[in-house]
Amino acid sequence: MSWLVLFWILLKASLFSTSGTGNLPILHDELLARGWATESDFAEALAIGQISPGPTGLWVISLGYLLDGPRGALLALVAVALPPLTVLLVHGLYLRYGAHPATQGFVRGLTLAVAGIFVVVLVQIMQGTGVDARSLGIAAVALALGATRRVPVPAILALAGLAGVVLY
């Protein structure tokens, strides 16, 4: 695994996302194609990212670590910190064109596409561990508990882990 290529993929994914987990589709596409990551790596990194404090987008630091140790984590950190710096450059442009229908439309299209592809990625991650009545049940319960916003995410994941040990 070349660290330069890994960094480039991480950077590209960050450049083409406008939210914390929006980088998932590109990373999933390119890292799986190269055989540098497995479906499980993504699931594990996402889970750790959900437990850790701070922006959800830091899940990618965990992914970097799982793939390439401390160096991978560092590459991921630089890759997520650089693209938002463009905010300092685009401020003038934003005042002029931010409200333009084409700008708004581009961001809307990008967000909708990411959301759609996100679901595809999740289905593939699910297939990676096996789809059966038990796993579908756990996913549904986690979704429902998460939607209530009353149960903390680490608690949901802990319950799910327990369910995994008991059921499998």
Partner: peptide, 14 residues
């Protein structure tokens, strides 16, 4: 553990 955590991550991801 993962066999439980992965589907839950997928649910939360949805």
């Amino acid at each position: 553990l993962l066999r439980g955590v992965v589907p839950a991550t997928v649910g939360l991801g949805l």
